[in-house]
Design a protein around this nucleic acid. Structure first.
Length: 583
DNA sequence: CTTCAATGTCATTCC
DNA sequence: AAGGAATGACATTGA
């Protein structure tokens, strides 16, 4: 898999990087790493640091620009777009409620920074993300380090976080959780107020993560890492070692995310499961990754800031969230006048509805190809309902913009995974709404929802207490189900009509042919009869004699027959004379 | 990569 | 008025 192209007199950058990788993987190179041009590496390191400083400056400027932009924009509730803020309208986007604990505010601001840092075009980042979404972040960010795909990945993030249904569902679960726990979260009652606290949950990029981890990871590891991925994209040969990036992130993610998201609140919980970032030997973990995904589902849950909200009391939240993003329809968003709708309401932002969510089910994005392989061991098609179960959906989001399916192109044609994927696809195709219903824990089967008569349906609904999102989903499922059948019938009818019309057309063609044949026969017959008549006429005319016994001239006389069958010999002259008189 | 058929979905109209 | 059928239009998906 790895191709080592060593034999050059002066090792190139790629060679050095490759040596680094090998070294960190504890692969015996037969000599110390310094042997492979230590001085050059020092220079490179200095250059790298210089570059980083410039990059930091740039990021700083970008953050300021973003903040300025935020201050000037206002959310359009109807279109879900940001529009230039009017002087007197609306609340400041970043208004923190008085009820919000200080650490939440702190989280928000730090998150903003992190988000801004993440996204080069970070205006896109101004999407909503409700707190439960945080539960997804570590796991979803796991593949982040493979930053050569960062544009795709960022886009995937944008899309994921922008999903109205995701927001809606998560938001509702947030509310449920808050009700049960009386949690520490801000007790906002209006979406507008809620927005600022939930709007910016960061997706730390690699650089950010690395810097944040500096206090727990040995500097040399960081340096090594930074050197190894100085400009990650160009390292093509690293593409064949895709395993490393996720691992790096797994090491960073625990503390990093906690620090960024919940500097105070979450830390205690997370540290109990913090991955051994501080061990300092990145090489070992790098080498382990391909065979041993660092994140197990449980770990992912533990690392999820979101479960801080109430992990103990409502573990099912975790199982619900992954799918719940797909469970809420556009209408759900609109019904609840949720902040998400105002952010990306209706279809203005690509029209993400529950159907859009489903698309994620079957289309792994390019950015996650490595990712899917990484988690192929722990991934359950739909069974575990661990946070990982969000993966297929998230991955499905991709193809809209990255229509390739790198999973099939990675060269890892491991049949089990491929088969599993195909199987999941077919399952997904059969049970889209079922997955949604499952995600929102709808207590009915989709068939019941669709097929029951209205009265029975209403009765069934009245027997269960469903929240708004569930109701909306049930309505959507029923509407879609009915419409799906209607569409099938319609197409069937259309096809039948077409078939019938084609049959009619054939019949008419045959009829036409038959009539033409008949016409030809009749014409022929008519011609024959005319001929016979003419012959008969001449014969009869030839037999006629005048008083002197001479035959009548055909020029002067003609035979004419009246309606009663009597035949007269009529002189033609009179006829011509009368004609002259008329004229 | 393009094309095409099948299918799902949405919007709209009508009953 | 609500629910559903019908259907055109569009998007997605897989071959």
């Amino acid at each position: 898999m790895m191709e080592i192209e060593m034999p050059k007199i002066h090792p190139s950058q790629q060679d050095i990087d490759l040596i680094d990788i090998l070294w960190r993987q504890d692969i015996d190179l037969g000599a110390g790493r310094e042997v492979f041009d230590y001085c050059q590496r020092q220079k490179e390191h200095e250059l790298q640091q210089q570059r980083e400083q410039e990059e930091d400056k740039r990021l700083q400027q970008q953050r300021e620009q973003e903040k300025a932009l935020l201050a000037q924009l206002q959310l359009d509730e109807e279109t879900g777009e940001f529009v230039p803020r009017l002087a007197t309208s609306g609340q400041p986007l970043q208004t923190a409620t008085s009820a919000a604990p200080s650490q939440v505010i702190q989280t928000t601001s730090s998150c903003l920074d992190a988000v801004v840092a993440l996204a080069p075009n970070s205006s896109h980042i101004m999407m909503k993300s409700d707190p439960p979404a945080l539960t997804q972040l570590p796991l979803l960010t796991a593949p982040l380090p493979s930053q050569r795909t960062s544009p795709d990945l960022e886009q995937a993030w944008m899309e994921l976080l922008s999903l109205p249904e995701l927001q809606q569902c998560l938001n509702m679960q947030m509310e449920d959780t808050r009700e049960q726990t009386g949690g520490y979260l801000p007790t906002n009652t209006t979406p507008e107020v809620q927005d600022p606290n939930y709007s910016f949950y960061p997706l730390p990029n690699l650089a950010e993560v690395a810097s944040n981890t500096a206090d727990v990871c040995p500097p040399e590891f960081i340096n090594t890492f930074e050197e190894s991925f100085p400009n990650i994209a160009p390292l093509d040969h690293l593409n064949q070692m895709t395993l490393k990036a996720p691992d790096l992130n797994t090491h960073f993610s625990a503390d990093t995310f906690c620090d960024i998201f919940y500097p105070d609140v979450v830390h205690t919980k997370v540290t109990s499961v913090t991955l051994p970032c501080g061990q300092g030997n990145g090489g070992n973990s790098l080498a382990e990754i391909p065979n041993k995904p660092t994140f197990t589902p449980m770990e992912l849950q533990d690392l999820s800031p979101g479960d801080t909200f109430d992990r103990d009391n409502k573990p099912e939240i975790m199982t619900e969230c992954p799918d719940s993003d797909s469970g809420v329809s556009v209408e759900a968003s609109s019904y609840s006048s949720s902040p998400e709708k105002s952010m990306y309401g209706d279809r203005s932002f690509g029209g993400y509805s529950d159907s859009d969510m489903d698309e994620m089910d079957s289309n792994p994005g390019s950015a996650q190809s490595d990712y899917s392989e990484m988690f192929s061991l722990s991934f359950q098609p739909d069974g575990l309902q661990t946070p990982l179960s969000v993966l297929p959906q998230q991955r499905d989001k991709e193809p809209k913009h990255a229509k390739t399916e790198p999973d099939d192109e990675t060269g890892h044609s491991e049949s089990p995974f491929t088969k599993d994927k195909k199987r999941r696809r077919s399952e997904k195709r059969l049970s889209r709404d079922e997955q949604r219903a499952k995600a929102l824990q709808i207590p009915f089967t989709v068939d019941m929802i669709i097929d029951l008569p209205v009265d029975d349906f209403n009765e069934m609904m009245s027997k269960h207490q469903l929240n708004e999102a569930q109701l909306a989903l049930v309505r959507d499922i029923r509407r879609r189900g009915k419409n799906k059948v209607a569409a099938q019938n319609c197409r069937k009818r259309k096809m039948e009509n077409i078939t019938e019309l084609e049959y009619d057309l054939d019949s008419l063609k045959e009829e036409k042919e038959r009539l033409q044949t008949e016409k030809t026969k009749n014409d022929s017959s008519l011609r024959k009869m005319k001929q016979q008549l003419n012959t008969l006429y001449l014969e009869v005319f030839g037999l006629l004699r005048d008083e002197e016994g001479k035959p009548y001239s055909p020029l002067e006389y003609s035979l004419q027959q009246t309606t009663d069958g009597t035949v007269f010999l009529v002189p033609r002259i009179k006829k011509t004379l009368s004609k002259k008189k008329d004229s």
